[in-house]
Amino acid sequence: IKPRERSKLNWDDKLTLEFNGDTPQLTELIIERIENVPTVFLCGNSTVVDQDNEPWASWGQMVPRFFTDSICFANYAESGESANTFIAAGRLKKALTQMKSGDYIFMEFGHNDQKQKGPGKGAFYSFMTSLKTFVDEARARGVYPVLVTPTQRRSFDENGKIKDTHLDFPDAVRWLAEKENIPLIDLHAMTRILYEAMGVEESKHAFVHYPANTYPGQDKPLADNTHFNPYGAYQIAKCVIEGMKQAGLPLVKYLRTDNEGYDPACPDARETFKWNESPFTELEKPDGN
């Protein structure tokens, strides 16, 4: 694991639960092992990983909120990873040891993959080969693969339109999904609509943009156009849910009854979003961009 991971609670031998809110209450907690529910394994980078500290967040940690306890989510994503480095670090191998027939594996890569240069690198070369490895390993175990195109960066042109910064990596994901008959969630397309609907200035409130002294020890402004804050991550998680519906994934039957349809062209008003912040903060941005 990377040095920054060593302090994460994922790697100790304990189960740590954090309760936040105005009046957090817990009457009873019972933990039982259950073997017969499907599990959705999430693989990806910093836009997917469980972000431990404020003000960072990802869609991967928000998605479980929309589902009942009849399905499980296992987030294996890690900041800074590309499809090939995820495999090389043994993360896919570890996840495969936990998978069973009927589970799902979601893969969202591209942000960091596009920075790799040299012979054999590129969207339709090493990237495609790595994604195909995920797909083949999953299918060999009766696991259903789902491909996810990378989320857009907050990068506007002079006309208030999002500029494509991922080269041909989203197209490579779409091509592989069609060739291999794999369900596709096109977050690249949906987040373009979402950010443009928000606009140049309002979209800052979906990312880690905060003036100096917003958080303890923060003596400089935070201005990150790749990583989301909780509000932004929540909106993108809603995009993922809509993508599941559009792809006809059977797991949507596990959605909670309070889940309504979502149109990225009409994002939730920021003022209606309630988030009880964790007392833990981190000023250093996640690995990857």
Rank of each mutant, 00 (worst) to 15 (best):
D224N: 12
S126W: 08
V48N: 04
D50S: 10
S79I: 04
K274M: 15
D113N: 10
E18G: 13
S130A: 12
F280E: 09
I87M: 11
S101N: 09
Y231A: 03
Q235N: 14
E18D: 15
W175I: 13
A95R: 04
P55T: 08
F66G: 00
F109G: 03
S101W: 10
K2V: 02
P64S: 03
G243M: 10
I30P: 14
P170I: 09
E282I: 11
D136Y: 06
A237R: 06
K204T: 06
K204Q: 00
F106I: 08
G90R: 02
V63I: 01
R4E: 06
E108S: 08
A123D: 06
L184N: 02
P279M: 13
N53H: 07
Y262V: 04
D287V: 14
G21A: 12
A206D: 06
T151W: 05
F106L: 15
T191Y: 11
A233N: 10
A247N: 00
D113I: 12
N259T: 14
A88D: 08
V135Y: 02
L42E: 13
N75T: 04
P221A: 11
S101Y: 09
L15M: 15
W59Q: 02
E137S: 14
T27V: 14
A140W: 04
I34N: 05
E32P: 13
C43Q: 06
T272G: 06
A223F: 12
T133L: 09
P211A: 15
T281W: 02
E28R: 11
E180A: 13
A83P: 07
E28M: 15
V173M: 12
N159H: 10
N53Q: 09
E196K: 03
V135H: 03
A140C: 00
A140H: 05
F280M: 11
D113E: 03
N276M: 03
A95Q: 03
E28F: 15
P183S: 10
V200R: 00
E178L: 08
V252E: 08
S46E: 04
F67C: 05
N289W: 15
T191I: 01
L26R: 07
Q61R: 07
Y262A: 12
S58D: 03
P267S: 07
S82H: 11
Y104R: 05
E201V: 07
D103Q: 07
T165G: 08
R91T: 05
A89I: 01
P64N: 07
P145M: 02
N229I: 06
R192Y: 13
T129P: 09
V148H: 04
I185T: 02
N10C: 11
E5Y: 01
T191C: 09
L187R: 03
E28V: 15
A233Q: 02
N84F: 14
K253D: 09
L15Q: 12
C239P: 07
I1W: 08
K14P: 15
N181G: 13
Q116W: 04
V240L: 06
R33W: 03
A83R: 09
Y104T: 04
G90L: 03
L29T: 14
N225H: 12
T16D: 11
A89R: 05
E202R: 01
I87W: 12
F124W: 07
N10V: 11
A212I: 04
P221E: 07
P230A: 13
C43K: 00
L131C: 14
